[in-house]
Amino acid sequence: MQNPDTQAPAKKKRTRLSPQDREHLILTGAIEFVADHGFAFSTRELARHLNVSQSLLYRYFATKEEIIEKIYERVYVGRWNPEWDEILTDRKLSVQERLECYLLDYSKVVLQKDWVRIFLLTAFEDPIISQRYISMLRRRIFEPLLDEQLASMGRKALANPKDRELALELIWGFHSSIFYLGVRQWVYKTPTRVNIETLVRSRTRSFLVGFEAFLNELDQPTNGENPPC
């Protein structure tokens, strides 16, 4: 008879995950993998990294394209705060207050490792994620911000398409400066030493001063002269 003190420890019961939990774990692992390696992978490589069989992976994601779509939905669409749209059009606040409020919350999302690296790495292989997201930014952030800034100045929408496109480019450049903070941290490994909130507020104020001046200059006649270089 075996001594009770020398009995082998009982085996732990293996927890059986629900299909929903299993899918969540696989997708979370896929996001981490893609953030480090990009989309130039095979489903076999992904399955090996996740320590699951390829057949199990296919049970939840039939194709690599489906994995990419789910990653986009989780990381980009899923983290989009619908209140951002409302904040930017809330005329009870100044444009500066609205923009600061939006960007401070937006920076908490965009400065995450998976957000930054997936956005950049996939752009080199297939820019579908970056193109879709930028299109959403233009429609839901850049264009409303331009219209709200014009309204705050008592101005109507820009009639000249070239002027409007230039104005949107200026907004895009300013907005991208927030994303660049994430690039510095997660790509260049040189994060800013300045408090993010202080930096966002300072950049917002500086941008709006120059942006308002730009919009006012659109009404000024140039007399056909080019400014000095």
Rank of each mutant, 00 (worst) to 15 (best):
W186D: 07
E100R: 05
S176A: 12
N216F: 10
E143Y: 10
K70Y: 03
H37F: 08
S130T: 14
L168N: 09
S55D: 07
V209Y: 15
S176R: 11
N160K: 09
F214A: 10
I71M: 08
L170Y: 11
V95W: 00
M1W: 02
F211W: 08
N195G: 08
R79P: 00
D126R: 08
Y188W: 15
I196A: 13
V194P: 04
L218T: 06
F119M: 11
L25C: 05
Q54N: 12
R22W: 00
I196L: 15
K189M: 09
R138E: 14
A159S: 14
T89E: 07
V77H: 09
Q185Y: 06
R138T: 10
I118D: 05
G154D: 12
F61P: 03
K12Q: 11
R117D: 02
K162Y: 15
E86S: 11
R91A: 02
K11D: 06
E45A: 09
P82H: 01
L146C: 07
A123W: 00
K189Y: 10
Y60L: 02
A30K: 01
V209P: 07
F207H: 10
Q2T: 08
I171T: 06
L111I: 03
F39P: 00
R14I: 06
I129G: 07
L88P: 02
W172T: 14
R16W: 05
R22P: 00
W186P: 09
T15L: 12
K156F: 06
L104T: 05
R164E: 12
L111M: 08
R164G: 08
R59P: 00
E32D: 15
P127W: 01
F211C: 06
S107Y: 07
E32V: 00
F142A: 09
P161E: 11
S55Y: 04
V95I: 11
Y106F: 14
I26P: 01
K162N: 13
A157I: 10
V109G: 00
L120N: 08
N195C: 13
R74G: 02
F207I: 11
Q220S: 12
T122Y: 02
P4E: 03
Q185G: 04
V194F: 11
K108L: 11
F174I: 04
Y180F: 15
S53N: 05
K113W: 03
L145F: 15
V209H: 13
H175P: 03
F119Y: 13
E125P: 03
A157Q: 14
S176G: 12
L25W: 03
C229Y: 15
S202R: 13
Q185I: 04
A62G: 10
L145G: 02
R138V: 07
Y106D: 03
V109N: 01
I171F: 10
A157P: 05
A123S: 13
E73S: 10
N223H: 15
V77G: 01
C229H: 14
L137A: 08
F179T: 05
C229I: 15
V95R: 01
P4N: 02
I171D: 07
E100F: 00
L168C: 10
V109I: 14
Y72D: 03
E45N: 05
P161A: 09
N160S: 10
D147N: 11
E100K: 06
T89A: 03
Q185A: 14
D147S: 12
L218F: 08
G210K: 07
M1G: 15
F174D: 06
D105H: 06
Q2P: 13
E69R: 08
L150C: 04
D114E: 14
K113D: 09
L27T: 04
L166C: 12
T122A: 12
A62S: 15
K64V: 04
T6G: 00
